[in-house]
Design a protein around this nucleic acid. Structure first.
Lengths: 126, 126
DNA sequence: CAGTATCCTGGTGGATACTG
DNA sequence: CAGTATCCACCAGGATACTG
């Protein structure tokens, strides 16, 4: 990845007016950029598996709708795995796949930068 | 930054119903997460300075409204610097601050991960 | 050239109720 | 327990026109 190749490329499709991004950063944000994705992943990171309702309790403020939708999307992208036990009452557990865990170093970088920015912004306000 | 400290914390303020995120990742995405921020930064990265209209031409599809708004916000957060020359017609140049450039390693990480995900998704479709 | 000022649309995310 | 099904509000982002 040299510098010239790094910068965002967009492929233009004038026929239907649709721009398809081929930019990996945009692609990544499309996977983890929505409101609840990261809070969910955060809860899963340090754990083996988590049940639906435990997740719902831990991710403050999330509704069934959003939790279900987010989990589906994360599953579709292969970051999260759903395991269902055929018991009564039902028991469903969610866990990170290796692919989900591969996000950790990247998030750590983002965390580091964000933390730096928070400190700098604090200093400017003071 | 140990693992326990890493995960997202939100401070709850029940009085006005507002949740203020103290999570550095959320903070970072609040700065660079909007639609046009990264495309703009991308154009600035390999350059010394760029004029307003050059930026507008390069960032495909952006309107005056969005370009102006995004640049203002980037300036507020100290990532971008605006320099105005008192000539007729006016000449305004935008460039990255050191703080803006400090984003580069982080973006490279996100790029790397996103690229990996794109390849994996391609393989699954095939 | 480098922006502002208005007005408006669409779609993310939320509220609420219901169920295998 | 672990979800669906409907309906809805809000605001990021866009279209268009105008200007120092």
């Amino acid at each position: 990845m040299d510098e010239k190749e790094f910068f965002c490329r967009r492929s233009e499709q004038p026929d239907d007016g649709v721009y398809v991004s081929t930019c990996p950063v945009t692609y990544a944000l499309g996977i983890i950029g929505q409101k609840w994705k990261l809070p969910i992943l955060w809860h899963l990171f340090p754990r083996e598996a988590t049940r639906y309702n435990e997740l719902k309790r831990s991710v403050r403020g999330i509704t069934n709708m959003m939790l279900t939708k987010s989990l589906h999307e994360l599953e579709e992208h292969g970051l999260v795995e759903r395991r269902q036990y055929e018991t009564v009452p039902p028991r469903v557990e969610y866990s990170l796949t290796p692919r989900g865990r591969s996000l950790f170093p990247t998030l750590k970088e983002l965390y580091r930068w964000g933390e730096e920015q928070m400190r700098l912004d604090e200093l400017r306000k003071a």
